[in-house]
Design a protein around this nucleic acid. Structure first.
Lengths: 135, 135
DNA sequence: CTACTTGCAAACTATTTGCGTTACG
DNA sequence: CGTAACGCAAATAGTTTGCAAGTAG
């Protein structure tokens, strides 16, 4: 009696296509407004609501991920390979760290808890090279 | 020419003392309102602003930590030993996972980046035992 | 005494939503 | 054509803040 995950279909939208393209082409981990400002010249009548609605859809599709970095606002990234984040406490910059040292970590936890683990996140907090110099 | 970390002193407050005591005595990872509701009987004129202000102070003192669990609201915990979180995607419950499998992880990253690492967090996402049964 | 903390209420801000219009399929 | 997606603006919701009054040191 297992429930089949229903595969919702979404209609094509130029705005959403562009949104994903931008997310995929940037090294940043943009906020909603950053994305909005970036798209605005191309879509003069774009609204923030549309950005948020499409981000939600892309997240549901599993191609975009929301990041909680302790800020008051959300950041987003196009989901690619698993990676970790280096979050600077001074300037808030998030840098990806591609190499995976601990691919076996999920299994390790699975063995010792009664929790169905789908994935994990590892974030490192500290000071980035740029900020270290500053007083 | 290194800047000395200034040690700000805080005046005693019954509300703050109680707040910390509650945070330390609970297994939950409470929200601000949960704490507010819990304290209200003892401090009938308590305001939410006071809860938030004191949480900020306790965080600055390093005895309380804010948790980003993907919700729209913040959760808090009294900082004790380092541990990981199991976050249930269905009910939002956060369970502590005390055992540390990877104490050496910070050093491992330090060796390969130009980032001053102060600490890290590891959160696991999935479904808790209670929610697994539900359709 | 004096200045940190509180309670109250108003302000803020990021995000969400209702509604009439546009446009994909 | 039917209905998902849009733009717009108003609504939410969690958190922060200004100010007058209370209180620790």
């Amino acid at each position: 009696m297992k429930k089949i995950t229903l595969k919702k279909t979404y209609r094509y939208s130029r705005q959403r296509e562009r949104l994903l393209a931008i997310l995929r082409s940037t090294e940043n981990h943009p906020t909603a407004i950053w994305l909005y400002d970036w798209m605005k010249p191309e879509f003069p009548s774009l609204s923030l609501g549309t950005v948020y609605r499409n981000l939600a859809i892309l997240i549901e599709q599993g191609v975009v991920r929301k990041i909680d970095a302790g800020s008051t606002f959300d950041r987003f990234e196009a989901k690619t390979s698993p990676h970790y984040h280096l979050i600077c406490r001074k300037c808030g910059t998030i840098t990806d760290f591609e190499k995976r040292f601990f691919p076996e970590i999920d299994d390790e936890i699975r063995r010792s808890t009664d929790f169905t683990i789908e994935g994990h996140r590892i974030d490192f907090f500290g000071t980035c090279a740029d900020c270290r110099g500053k007083s």
